[in-house]
């Protein structure tokens, strides 16, 4: 069976202002199965977000090949959705109209759009907030709307770029649980990027640890925490501690290396509109 997402020998270099190149990622080989929840962790600046941009089709790899369902990725499309850390909600649209955005891109009729958008706001627990503007919502609610927006147009793959990093601990915990619930319900393939070890172990079926610059896959750890309903507090179980320690050990050296590295020259990463 072909994997849902497959990366072979993927590398990305950016031109550096004043000449030269900056290698963000190099030689990434990674397969993600259909319906899998894969978490990518790595030290800051290891190219995690670049990896997500590549899978999303927002930038093209310098080397290697990225494929979704066996077909090479040549640009962004509605078979993938990206959830950003900064929510990226359109402030002039209400929650409902934000969720409808992707559906408009899909070319659905107004009534159909509103119905699907309502269902997805309900899915993330935001019924009754349809007519609120983003500035009237809390950070956690904004991210719920963003998740609803990404799910509404029914992409096979959900790409999440540190979506809970800007939230407070309690909101983050409850959103993690809700995300797992949604994942179980919808069966999406999720690639989730984080720099938090606990978050990675808690969410991931597998956790891919990236090396510091340039980012490579150091190891992919399988996480098995047993059934989540069975235990009250998964995070305090011995299995959780063991997995956590494993990922922590893998990351420790990389974080130290990352800190030793000098700050790179600013790179050109301007967003091109065309």
């Amino acid at each position: 069976m072909t994997p849902k997402i497959s990366l072979t020998g993927v590398g990305k270099t950016f031109p550096v202002r004043g000449g030269g190149e900056f290698t963000a990622l190099s030689g990434i080989d990674l397969d993600v199965a259909e319906g899998e929840f894969l978490v990518v962790v790595g030290p800051s600046g290891c190219g995690k977000s670049t990896l997500l941009d590549l899978i999303g089709g927002l930038t093209r790899p310098t080397t290697g090949r990225i494929a979704i369902d066996g077909a090479e990725v040549t640009g962004p499309a509605l078979d993938r959705a990206v959830v950003f850390q900064q929510y990226a909600l359109f402030p002039w649209r209400t929650a409902l109209r934000n969720v409808e955005f992707g559906l408009e891109a899909k070319g659905l009729r107004r009534r159909e759009r509103a119905e699907i958008a309502r269902d997805h706001l309900d899915l993330v627990g935001l019924s009754g907030f349809e007519d609120r503007y983003p500035h009237e919502l809390s950070g956690g609610m904004k991210q719920r709307v963003a998740i609803a927006r990404s799910l509404a147009y029914d992409p096979g793959v959900l790409l999440m770029d540190e979506p809970f990093a800007a939230l407070d601990a309690q909101t983050r915990d409850s959103l993690q649980d809700e995300l797992l619930g949604i994942w179980a319900k919808t069966g999406k393939t999720v690639v989730f990027i984080t720099h938090g070890i606990d978050e990675a172990v808690y969410l991931g079926g597998r956790v891919a640890v990236l090396t510091s610059r340039p980012g490579r896959v150091k190891e992919v750890a399988d996480i098995d925490l047993g059934s989540r309903d069975a235990r009250e507090d998964v995070r305090s179980s011995p299995e959780f501690a063991a997995h956590r320690h494993r990922v922590w050990s893998l990351l420790k050296d990389e974080v130290q290396t990352a800190q030793r590295l000098t700050v790179p020259a600013p790179r050109k990463e301007a967003i091109h509109l065309g």
């Binding site: 962004p76 499309a77 509605l78 959705a81 950003f84 990226a88 408009e104 891109a105 147009y153 967003i271």
Partner: peptide
């Protein structure tokens, strides 16, 4: 806001649509 443009771009919207639906209202 570049994130808004990026978000619209991730849906595969063509430049003209991004202009109409994101740049103009913003």
């Amino acid at each position: 806001d570049a994130t808004l443009v990026k978000s619209a771009r991730s849906l595969g919207l063509p430049a003209v649509r991004i202009f109409q639906k994101v740049i103009l209202p913003a």
